[in-house]
Computed example of a mutant assay.
Amino acid sequence: MQPPSRRTFLALGLITLTAACTTGTDGATPPDPKASGPDTDHPVRLRAVAATDTLLAAYDTLLTTPGDRAPLLQTLRAETVQHRTALAQGLPTTSTPPTTPTPSITTTPATPATLAALEHQTAQSHLADLAAARPPLARLLASVSAANTLHATALGAPIEQPTPSPTPGTTTPGTPLPALQKALSAEHAAVYGYGVVGAHLPDDQQRTDARTAYAAHQSQRDAWQRLITTLGATPAPAAGGYRLPFPVTDPTTATNLAAHLETSLTTVYADLVADLPAPHRPTAATALRDCTLRAHRWGAPDTPFPGIPTPLPTPTQT
């Protein structure tokens, strides 16, 4: 992969979409007590909290046995507590999750391997509820699912391979073209950026990883182009070139750029989950997961909510 030599530049650091203003951990506005009608997110949140409680119980069981993995387990458990708090937002304090585990979640004696499997199952259960959730909660579920997958990897599960980008199926009325065009533009920038990354890495495993990521972003770019074309619009073209967020001159700065690209894309895809109609949410959620795993592999700091910026404190009602 040779770095492009074009002279037209755009700010690569701006590929991250501006996050919507939020007043809660999941970007949702606190429920209006005067609003009429049932909260359709209520059963989704109950299922997500129940699955998370099963996880917390497994962590607690495993932490009763001293070992050298205790610091890691405590860190992952603390993040899981944050997940539960966010997922339970808006639930009445008298509401409690079902006493039986979510059907898709199995429980076995806790070991690092079974805990990793439970994290993976929890990730899948959150994705299964994407279509049933309103946009802000869908965004949160996709983010927590990505974090669950990252936890599974930290506990020793094999790193999941990127999922091939699906070809567009039946389009859905109301599919937001501006959001898709922004995601496509972000992938154009990522493809360019990885050309620079690969050119500054030695011919070793890191360069192999860069080639793999480069191909994955090309595939995702092509998938968005096909979907946009199916919707009757013209896909946004790649810019002539892109200004890097910092100079890339050696393997260290090259890996920093790769981490920056993937971290920026997690925000793009978390927002896209909320913007897309239900049938297309899994594609964006899968892209969020894949970018989260690649960002981790390149050394980016892990966060409890991939793709969701640290929230502002929730205003108190007066």
Rank of each mutant, 00 (worst) to 15 (best):
P97A: 12
R221N: 08
S219G: 04
P309T: 09
L76W: 07
P162H: 05
L87N: 08
P237W: 14
T318F: 12
L46M: 14
G198N: 02
P135C: 11
R77H: 10
P30R: 00
R297N: 08
T171F: 01
D129P: 00
A19Y: 03
G198Q: 03
T122S: 03
P279A: 11
D302K: 14
R211P: 02
T310F: 00
T40Q: 07
L63P: 00
Y242P: 00
A128S: 02
I105P: 00
P313C: 13
T266N: 11
T208C: 04
T29K: 00
L312S: 05
L115A: 06
A51L: 10
A132C: 03
D60E: 12
D250R: 02
R45V: 07
T303L: 07
A78P: 01
L46N: 06
T253D: 05
S36D: 04
P112N: 04
A285G: 05
G27A: 01
T229F: 10
P235F: 09
P178Q: 06
A50Y: 10
A233W: 11
T122Q: 03
A233C: 06
T255C: 08
P112M: 08
A274E: 11
T252E: 10
L72S: 02
A51S: 10
A48V: 09
T249V: 15
P247W: 10
A48F: 06
A190Q: 08
D39C: 05
A113K: 06
R221A: 10
T61D: 09
L184I: 14
W298F: 11
A70L: 13
P31D: 11
P202A: 13
T22Q: 06
P158K: 03
A110T: 15
L55N: 04
R226A: 14
D209V: 07
Q205S: 13
D271C: 02
T111Q: 13
L73W: 03
P98F: 10
T99L: 12
P202I: 14
P315Q: 15
P173G: 06
A239P: 06
Q218D: 00
L244H: 06
L312W: 13
A157V: 13
H120Y: 14
T230D: 15
A78R: 10
Q225F: 07
G241P: 02
L180W: 05
G24Q: 07
T171P: 02
E160D: 10
